[in-house]
Protein backbone atom coordinates (compact mmCIF):
# COMPACT_ATOMS: atom_id res chain seq x y z
CA UNK A 1 0.00 0.00 0.00
CA UNK A 2 2.86 2.36 0.87
CA UNK A 3 4.47 1.61 -2.46
CA UNK A 4 1.17 2.31 -4.18
CA UNK A 5 0.88 5.73 -2.51
CA UNK A 6 4.49 6.58 -3.31
CA UNK A 7 3.97 5.60 -6.94
CA UNK A 8 0.91 7.81 -7.26
CA UNK A 9 2.69 10.68 -5.50
CA UNK A 10 5.54 10.55 -8.01
CA UNK A 11 3.05 10.44 -10.85
CA UNK A 12 1.39 13.53 -9.41
CA UNK A 13 4.70 15.45 -9.31
CA UNK A 14 5.53 14.45 -12.88
CA UNK A 15 2.11 15.57 -14.13
CA UNK A 16 2.39 18.87 -12.29
CA UNK A 17 5.81 19.42 -13.85
CA UNK A 18 4.40 19.08 -17.36
CA UNK A 19 1.38 21.16 -16.43
CA UNK A 20 3.65 23.96 -15.19
CA UNK A 21 5.48 23.95 -18.51
CA UNK A 22 2.20 24.20 -20.37
CA UNK A 23 1.00 27.00 -18.14
CA UNK A 24 4.26 28.83 -18.68
CA UNK A 25 3.85 28.51 -22.44
CA UNK A 26 0.34 29.94 -22.18
CA UNK A 27 1.69 32.82 -20.13
CA UNK A 28 4.22 33.52 -22.85
CA UNK A 29 1.73 33.22 -25.72
CA UNK A 30 0.13 36.68 -25.91
CA UNK A 31 1.94 39.11 -28.22
CA UNK A 32 4.41 41.45 -26.54
CA UNK A 33 5.85 40.73 -23.13
CA UNK A 34 5.36 41.79 -19.58
CA UNK A 35 7.59 44.86 -19.98
CA UNK A 36 5.52 46.20 -22.89
CA UNK A 37 2.31 45.80 -21.00
CA UNK A 38 3.80 47.13 -17.79
CA UNK A 39 5.02 50.28 -19.51
CA UNK A 40 1.75 50.71 -21.35
CA UNK A 41 -0.26 50.36 -18.16
CA UNK A 42 1.90 52.57 -16.03
CA UNK A 43 2.43 55.45 -18.41
CA UNK A 44 -0.40 55.47 -20.93
CA UNK A 45 -2.50 58.59 -20.52
CA UNK A 46 0.08 60.22 -18.25
CA UNK A 47 1.75 62.09 -21.06
CA UNK A 48 5.09 60.46 -20.37
CA UNK A 49 6.79 59.37 -23.56
CA UNK A 50 8.04 55.81 -23.18
CA UNK A 51 11.10 55.01 -25.23
CA UNK A 52 12.49 51.68 -26.31
CA UNK A 53 15.26 52.13 -23.71
CA UNK A 54 12.76 52.54 -20.90
CA UNK A 55 11.09 49.30 -21.84
CA UNK A 56 14.48 47.68 -22.14
CA UNK A 57 15.35 48.73 -18.61
CA UNK A 58 12.05 47.40 -17.29
CA UNK A 59 12.82 44.21 -19.12
CA UNK A 60 16.18 43.99 -17.34
CA UNK A 61 14.58 44.81 -14.02
CA UNK A 62 12.24 41.83 -14.27
CA UNK A 63 14.82 39.60 -15.87
CA UNK A 64 12.82 39.32 -19.08
CA UNK A 65 15.97 39.56 -21.23
CA UNK A 66 17.05 36.11 -20.15
CA UNK A 67 16.13 32.97 -22.14
CA UNK A 68 12.75 31.31 -21.61
CA UNK A 69 13.99 28.22 -19.78
CA UNK A 70 15.84 30.39 -17.27
CA UNK A 71 12.74 32.48 -16.66
CA UNK A 72 10.72 29.31 -16.25
CA UNK A 73 13.12 28.02 -13.65
CA UNK A 74 13.10 31.31 -11.69
CA UNK A 75 9.31 31.35 -11.81
CA UNK A 76 8.84 27.76 -10.69
CA UNK A 77 11.61 28.08 -8.07
CA UNK A 78 9.84 31.07 -6.54
CA UNK A 79 6.56 29.13 -6.38
CA UNK A 80 8.01 25.99 -4.88
CA UNK A 81 10.31 27.61 -2.32
CA UNK A 82 8.62 30.89 -1.36
CA UNK A 83 5.08 30.42 -2.65
CA UNK A 84 5.83 33.47 -4.79
CA UNK A 85 3.91 33.48 -8.07
CA UNK A 86 5.53 36.66 -9.44
CA UNK A 87 4.29 40.22 -9.82
CA UNK A 88 0.82 41.40 -10.80
CA UNK A 89 0.83 44.71 -12.60
CA UNK A 90 -2.89 45.27 -12.72
CA UNK A 91 -2.89 45.52 -8.96
CA UNK A 92 0.75 46.62 -8.63
CA UNK A 93 1.48 44.06 -5.99
CA UNK A 94 2.48 40.40 -5.81
CA UNK A 95 0.20 37.72 -7.18
CA UNK A 96 -0.01 36.09 -3.77
CA UNK A 97 -1.58 39.24 -2.34
CA UNK A 98 -4.12 39.47 -5.14
CA UNK A 99 -5.16 35.88 -4.86
CA UNK A 100 -5.11 35.80 -1.07
CA UNK A 101 -8.61 35.40 0.29
CA UNK A 102 -10.06 34.17 -2.99
CA UNK A 103 -8.34 30.80 -2.64
CA UNK A 104 -10.30 30.07 0.53
CA UNK A 105 -13.59 31.23 -0.96
CA UNK A 106 -13.02 29.13 -4.04
CA UNK A 107 -12.33 26.05 -1.98
CA UNK A 108 -15.44 26.66 0.14
CA UNK A 109 -17.48 26.97 -3.04
CA UNK A 110 -15.88 23.81 -4.44
CA UNK A 111 -16.62 21.77 -1.33
CA UNK A 112 -20.21 23.02 -1.21
CA UNK A 113 -20.69 22.14 -4.87
CA UNK A 114 -19.20 18.66 -4.51
CA UNK A 115 -21.27 17.94 -1.42
CA UNK A 116 -24.42 18.99 -3.21
CA UNK A 117 -23.50 16.91 -6.28
CA UNK A 118 -22.87 13.71 -4.35
CA UNK A 119 -25.69 14.11 -1.86
CA UNK A 120 -28.09 14.36 -4.78
CA UNK A 121 -26.64 12.03 -7.36
CA UNK A 122 -25.68 9.00 -5.27
CA UNK A 123 -28.99 8.33 -3.45
CA UNK A 124 -31.18 9.30 -6.39
CA UNK A 125 -29.06 7.32 -8.85
CA UNK A 126 -29.26 4.24 -6.65
CA UNK A 127 -32.99 4.67 -6.13
CA UNK A 128 -33.66 5.08 -9.84
CA UNK A 129 -31.69 1.92 -10.63
CA UNK A 130 -33.57 -0.12 -8.05
CA UNK A 131 -36.95 1.26 -9.05
CA UNK A 132 -36.64 1.08 -12.79
CA UNK A 133 -39.31 2.99 -14.72
CA UNK A 134 -40.41 4.85 -11.64
CA UNK A 135 -40.97 8.58 -11.55
CA UNK A 136 -37.44 9.07 -10.20
CA UNK A 137 -36.06 7.03 -13.09
CA UNK A 138 -37.82 9.06 -15.78
CA UNK A 139 -37.04 12.33 -14.02
CA UNK A 140 -33.42 11.29 -13.95
CA UNK A 141 -33.33 10.72 -17.69
CA UNK A 142 -34.82 14.14 -18.37
CA UNK A 143 -32.47 15.88 -15.95
CA UNK A 144 -29.42 14.17 -17.36
CA UNK A 145 -30.28 15.37 -20.86
CA UNK A 146 -31.00 18.89 -19.65
CA UNK A 147 -27.85 18.85 -17.55
CA UNK A 148 -25.80 18.77 -20.71
CA UNK A 149 -28.04 20.97 -22.83
CA UNK A 150 -28.40 23.82 -20.37
CA UNK A 151 -24.89 24.99 -19.63
CA UNK A 152 -24.28 26.29 -16.14
CA UNK A 153 -23.97 29.93 -17.10
CA UNK A 154 -27.34 29.75 -18.79
CA UNK A 155 -28.86 28.23 -15.68
CA UNK A 156 -27.29 31.10 -13.75
CA UNK A 157 -28.92 33.60 -16.11
CA UNK A 158 -32.25 31.86 -15.73
CA UNK A 159 -32.01 31.91 -11.93
CA UNK A 160 -30.98 35.55 -12.12
CA UNK A 161 -33.99 36.29 -14.26
CA UNK A 162 -36.35 34.45 -11.94
CA UNK A 163 -34.82 36.19 -8.95
CA UNK A 164 -35.19 39.63 -10.49
CA UNK A 165 -38.66 39.27 -11.94
CA UNK A 166 -40.39 37.18 -9.28
CA UNK A 167 -38.53 37.81 -6.04
CA UNK A 168 -37.07 41.21 -6.79
CA UNK A 169 -33.68 40.18 -5.49
CA UNK A 170 -30.38 39.59 -7.14
CA UNK A 171 -29.12 36.12 -6.44
CA UNK A 172 -25.51 36.99 -7.22
CA UNK A 173 -22.51 37.59 -4.98
CA UNK A 174 -21.09 35.65 -2.09
CA UNK A 175 -21.76 38.27 0.60
CA UNK A 176 -24.41 40.80 1.46
CA UNK A 177 -23.15 44.35 0.94
CA UNK A 178 -22.71 44.99 4.66
CA UNK A 179 -20.34 42.05 5.03
CA UNK A 180 -18.37 42.58 1.84
CA UNK A 181 -15.46 44.38 3.43
CA UNK A 182 -16.11 43.34 7.01
CA UNK A 183 -13.58 41.20 8.87
CA UNK A 184 -14.41 37.56 9.36
CA UNK A 185 -17.01 36.87 12.00
CA UNK A 186 -19.64 34.26 12.74
CA UNK A 187 -22.30 36.48 11.17
CA UNK A 188 -20.25 36.92 8.03
CA UNK A 189 -19.75 33.17 7.77
CA UNK A 190 -23.48 32.57 8.05
CA UNK A 191 -24.05 35.19 5.40
CA UNK A 192 -21.60 33.35 3.15
CA UNK A 193 -23.41 30.05 3.65
CA UNK A 194 -26.71 31.64 2.70
CA UNK A 195 -25.19 33.05 -0.46
CA UNK A 196 -23.41 29.81 -1.35
CA UNK A 197 -26.58 28.00 -2.25
CA UNK A 198 -27.30 29.49 -5.67
CA UNK A 199 -23.72 29.30 -7.00
CA UNK A 200 -23.41 25.77 -5.65
CA UNK A 201 -26.64 24.73 -7.39
CA UNK A 202 -25.48 26.30 -10.65
CA UNK A 203 -22.04 24.71 -10.50
CA UNK A 204 -23.36 21.33 -9.36
CA UNK A 205 -25.93 21.24 -12.15
CA UNK A 206 -24.14 19.42 -14.95
CA UNK A 207 -21.83 17.45 -12.65
CA UNK A 208 -24.93 16.09 -10.89
CA UNK A 209 -26.62 15.25 -14.17
CA UNK A 210 -23.58 13.27 -15.28
CA UNK A 211 -23.04 11.50 -11.97
CA UNK A 212 -26.71 10.55 -11.75
CA UNK A 213 -26.30 8.70 -15.02
CA UNK A 214 -23.07 7.06 -13.93
CA UNK A 215 -24.45 5.92 -10.59
CA UNK A 216 -27.60 4.55 -12.14
CA UNK A 217 -25.72 2.71 -14.89
CA UNK A 218 -23.23 1.10 -12.50
CA UNK A 219 -25.96 0.29 -10.01
CA UNK A 220 -28.09 -1.37 -12.70
CA UNK A 221 -25.11 -3.48 -13.72
CA UNK A 222 -24.27 -4.49 -10.18
CA UNK A 223 -27.88 -5.20 -9.20
CA UNK A 224 -28.04 -8.17 -11.54
CA UNK A 225 -24.81 -9.79 -10.49
CA UNK A 226 -25.04 -13.17 -8.77
CA UNK A 227 -23.49 -11.95 -5.53
CA UNK A 228 -26.62 -9.85 -4.89
CA UNK A 229 -28.86 -12.90 -5.11
CA UNK A 230 -26.31 -14.80 -3.06
CA UNK A 231 -26.63 -12.17 -0.32
CA UNK A 232 -30.43 -12.47 -0.48
CA UNK A 233 -30.13 -16.24 -0.34
CA UNK A 234 -28.23 -15.82 2.92
CA UNK A 235 -31.39 -14.31 4.41
CA UNK A 236 -30.39 -10.65 4.55
CA UNK A 237 -33.10 -7.98 4.40
CA UNK A 238 -33.61 -6.28 1.05
CA UNK A 239 -32.47 -2.83 2.22
CA UNK A 240 -29.32 -4.28 3.70
CA UNK A 241 -28.63 -6.31 0.58
CA UNK A 242 -28.95 -3.25 -1.68
CA UNK A 243 -26.95 -0.87 0.45
CA UNK A 244 -24.23 -3.24 1.52
CA UNK A 245 -23.61 -4.99 -1.77
CA UNK A 246 -24.37 -3.29 -5.13
CA UNK A 247 -24.55 0.26 -3.75
CA UNK A 248 -21.14 -0.12 -2.22
CA UNK A 249 -19.70 -0.82 -5.67
CA UNK A 250 -21.80 1.80 -7.42
CA UNK A 251 -19.91 4.46 -5.48
CA UNK A 252 -16.56 3.46 -6.95
CA UNK A 253 -16.96 5.21 -10.31
CA UNK A 254 -18.06 8.33 -8.47
CA UNK A 255 -14.88 8.28 -6.43
CA UNK A 256 -12.74 7.63 -9.45
CA UNK A 257 -14.22 10.54 -11.41
CA UNK A 258 -13.96 13.15 -8.66
CA UNK A 259 -11.09 14.75 -10.59
CA UNK A 260 -13.31 15.11 -13.66
CA UNK A 261 -16.04 16.68 -11.57
CA UNK A 262 -13.66 19.24 -10.15
CA UNK A 263 -12.32 19.86 -13.63
CA UNK A 264 -15.84 20.50 -14.83
CA UNK A 265 -16.64 22.77 -11.89
CA UNK A 266 -13.45 24.79 -12.31
CA UNK A 267 -14.07 24.95 -16.00
CA UNK A 268 -17.40 26.63 -15.44
CA UNK A 269 -16.20 28.75 -12.53
CA UNK A 270 -15.08 31.83 -14.51
CA UNK A 271 -18.27 32.09 -16.51
CA UNK A 272 -20.64 31.46 -13.64
CA UNK A 273 -18.62 33.86 -11.51
CA UNK A 274 -19.03 36.51 -14.17
CA UNK A 275 -22.78 36.11 -14.30
CA UNK A 276 -23.32 35.80 -10.57
CA UNK A 277 -20.61 38.25 -9.55
CA UNK A 278 -18.62 35.90 -7.32
CA UNK A 279 -15.35 37.19 -5.89
CA UNK A 280 -13.34 34.04 -6.38
CA UNK A 281 -10.49 32.71 -8.48
CA UNK A 282 -12.46 32.04 -11.65
CA UNK A 283 -13.62 35.62 -11.93
CA UNK A 284 -10.10 36.85 -11.28
CA UNK A 285 -8.76 34.42 -13.86
CA UNK A 286 -11.13 35.80 -16.47
CA UNK A 287 -10.21 39.37 -15.60
CA UNK A 288 -6.51 38.68 -15.72
CA UNK A 289 -6.83 36.98 -19.12
CA UNK A 290 -8.75 39.98 -20.43
CA UNK A 291 -6.12 42.33 -18.94
CA UNK A 292 -3.29 40.01 -20.03
CA UNK A 293 -2.08 40.02 -16.43
CA UNK A 294 -0.38 36.75 -17.17
CA UNK A 295 1.38 36.05 -13.87
CA UNK A 296 -1.96 36.14 -12.08
CA UNK A 297 -3.60 34.01 -14.77
CA UNK A 298 -0.72 31.52 -14.67
CA UNK A 299 -0.84 31.27 -10.89
CA UNK A 300 -4.58 30.60 -10.88
CA UNK A 301 -4.39 28.10 -13.70
CA UNK A 302 -1.62 26.30 -11.85
CA UNK A 303 -3.53 26.28 -8.57
CA UNK A 304 -6.78 25.03 -10.08
CA UNK A 305 -4.93 22.27 -11.90
CA UNK A 306 -3.04 21.38 -8.75
CA UNK A 307 -6.29 20.91 -6.88
CA UNK A 308 -7.48 18.57 -9.64
CA UNK A 309 -4.26 16.58 -9.76
CA UNK A 310 -4.15 16.34 -6.00
CA UNK A 311 -7.75 15.17 -5.81
CA UNK A 312 -7.00 12.59 -8.49
CA UNK A 313 -4.26 11.35 -6.20
CA UNK A 314 -6.63 11.29 -3.23
CA UNK A 315 -9.31 9.50 -5.24
CA UNK A 316 -6.78 6.85 -6.31
CA UNK A 317 -6.01 6.16 -2.68
CA UNK A 318 -9.63 6.20 -1.55
CA UNK A 319 -10.49 3.84 -4.39
CA UNK A 320 -7.74 1.48 -3.28
CA UNK A 321 -9.14 1.59 0.25
CA UNK A 322 -12.66 0.93 -1.00
CA UNK A 323 -11.78 -1.83 -3.41
CA UNK A 324 -9.47 -4.59 -2.21
CA UNK A 325 -8.94 -5.74 -5.79
CA UNK A 326 -6.99 -2.57 -6.53
CA UNK A 327 -5.29 -2.51 -3.15
CA UNK A 328 -4.06 -6.09 -3.26
CA UNK A 329 -3.55 -6.73 -6.94
CA UNK A 330 -2.80 -3.37 -8.54
CA UNK A 331 -0.29 -2.16 -5.91
Amino acid sequence: MLRFILQRAIGMVVTMFFVSIMVFVIMELPPGDYADRYAFRKFSGTGVVVTEEDIESIRKQFGLDRPAWERYLTWIWGIVTRFDFGPSFAFETSVTDVIGERVGLTLVLLVATLLLTYLLSIPIGIYAAVRRQSLADYGLTVVSYLGLAIPNFMLALILLYIGVTYFDTTVGGLFSPEFEKAPWSWAKFRDLLAHLFVPAVVLAWSATALQLQTVRATMSDELHKPYVDAARARGLGEAKVILKYPARLAINPVVSTIGFDINRIFSELPIVALVLGLPELGELLLRSFLDLDMYVAGAILLMLTFVIVFMNFVSDIVLALLDPRIRLEGG
Binding site: K225, P226, Y227, D229, A230, A231, R232, A233, R234, G235, Y245, R248, L249, L322, D323, P324, R325
Partner: peptide, 20 residues
Protein backbone atom coordinates in the same frame (compact mmCIF):
# COMPACT_ATOMS: atom_id res chain seq x y z
CA UNK B 1 -36.22 -19.59 5.13
CA UNK B 2 -33.40 -18.28 2.98
CA UNK B 3 -30.10 -19.38 4.38
CA UNK B 4 -31.60 -20.68 7.60
CA UNK B 5 -33.71 -23.55 6.21
CA UNK B 6 -32.73 -23.64 2.56
CA UNK B 7 -29.25 -22.68 1.41
CA UNK B 8 -28.00 -22.16 -2.12
CA UNK B 9 -24.75 -22.92 -3.89
CA UNK B 10 -24.16 -21.10 -7.13
CA UNK B 11 -22.47 -22.08 -10.33
CA UNK B 12 -19.82 -19.33 -10.35
CA UNK B 13 -18.32 -19.02 -6.89
CA UNK B 14 -16.32 -15.97 -7.98
CA UNK B 15 -19.44 -14.10 -9.01
CA UNK B 16 -21.45 -15.24 -6.01
CA UNK B 17 -19.04 -13.67 -3.56
CA UNK B 18 -18.93 -9.90 -3.34
CA UNK B 19 -15.39 -8.84 -4.25
CA UNK B 20 -15.18 -6.13 -1.61
Amino acid sequence: LRGGEIALIFQEPMAAFSPV
